[in-house]
Design a binder for these strands. Sequence first.
DNA 1: CCTGGTACCTACTCGCGAGTAAGACTACTG
DNA 2: CAGTAGTCTTACTCGCGAGTAGGTACCAGG
Lengths: 211, 211
Amino acid sequence: MRTEGRAKRLPRAVRERQIMDAAVDVFSRLGFHAASMDEISEVAGISKPMLYAYLGSKEELFATCIRREATRMMEAIATGVEPDQEPDVQLWSGLRAFFGFVGENRASWLVLHRQASTQGGPFAVELTDMRTRAVSLVAALLTQSTKAPATKLEAESLAAALVGAGESLAEWWLDHPEEPAGVVAARLMNLVWMGFGDLVEGNVWHPPSRR
Amino acid sequence: MRTEGRAKRLPRAVRERQIMDAAVDVFSRLGFHAASMDEISEVAGISKPMLYAYLGSKEELFATCIRREATRMMEAIATGVEPDQEPDVQLWSGLRAFFGFVGENRASWLVLHRQASTQGGPFAVELTDMRTRAVSLVAALLTQSTKAPATKLEAESLAAALVGAGESLAEWWLDHPEEPAGVVAARLMNLVWMGFGDLVEGNVWHPPSRR
DNA sequence: CCTGGTACCTACTCGCGAGTAAGACTACTG
DNA sequence: CAGTAGTCTTACTCGCGAGTAGGTACCAGG
């Protein structure tokens, strides 16, 4: 891009969106350090000083990307989950929403998961924040549905494991895109709800329509 | 370090180990890009040209670190697992070995998990390799123990999810070091073997000594 | 048609870090 | 006490990329 001379004059808000999109794309491909402001400006179709005028430094830009994508994702999940249902159904709808989002927003997911988690800068804040929200959401679901009262640490660590399993399975999915999102989600649902112990016996979990 | 003038004369093999240790330390703290050869040489107590003389370029050094740490970890797990036992016991011993290793080798773990997975260079090879070995180990355990024959993709994705859950729980553990390794391992064992469905009912998995 | 304001540019500075040239110190070997 | 092989150093080069100075085109409203 950026081969022609001057770019069309556009209102600031529109340019900012374009820049953010370009930044997410480049960051997802190269990671924070390897991505250069020059390349981002090129992909965005404008010159470097515009980046600095609108979005500030490289760090600010990256943090803004993370914030935007994290918000989009959490909203997608929040919209998808059905809060008045049984715990297993809640979990199921949450998983479906999560894998749905990842499937349609690979770049967002890569920025959030791979890139942001590595850098120790001001980004960790944004990222940890979102992850914490996700984990405590699951932890709450767990605590609320369990009969034997579990300690806070226990619920939290299990939630962390579940979230991690989801992240990792999403990662695996990127290498096997032929599988539909629903199938992947269902597999994770079976793993965490039934456990291997049941699965090796042939007992599987079914969505509510089959009950 | 490196405040005094000349370093003591040492045989190459010893220096190489020192350098590798320093490199793992620095890489684990800063990540590949942010780590500088200057800092590594300083921590190692030696000057920069020695690095290049012994370990080659920065990329080679990093790849060598990954190879070494990955091997150490896989060996630790292989040593810990008990191959002639029931599937659940095998899994249990593997988990214990894994968390044991991570607990005693935080830096190794950070390099392997956080840093290596992000860089797309020649490292991905080493890393993916180890991860693949781990995943297919678990997948084999699964396939071998299941009665209803599962597809290869199914077993592999479940294994990926389990490995991911382990990785993520290890990450969580770094922020909650007060918990002993065994407890964390047992929690993951319960999650993946029993599933939430059983756990919320109060059914837990016990190690074989209790049976 | 001027006057300001906003979008946009070319063309720099400047520091940091990878990698190297060229040689100095030590120790063993005959 | 040479000679030589291996260890170790200081002091560079050089490119890349973050960030900026100092403009130019374009569009209002007067």
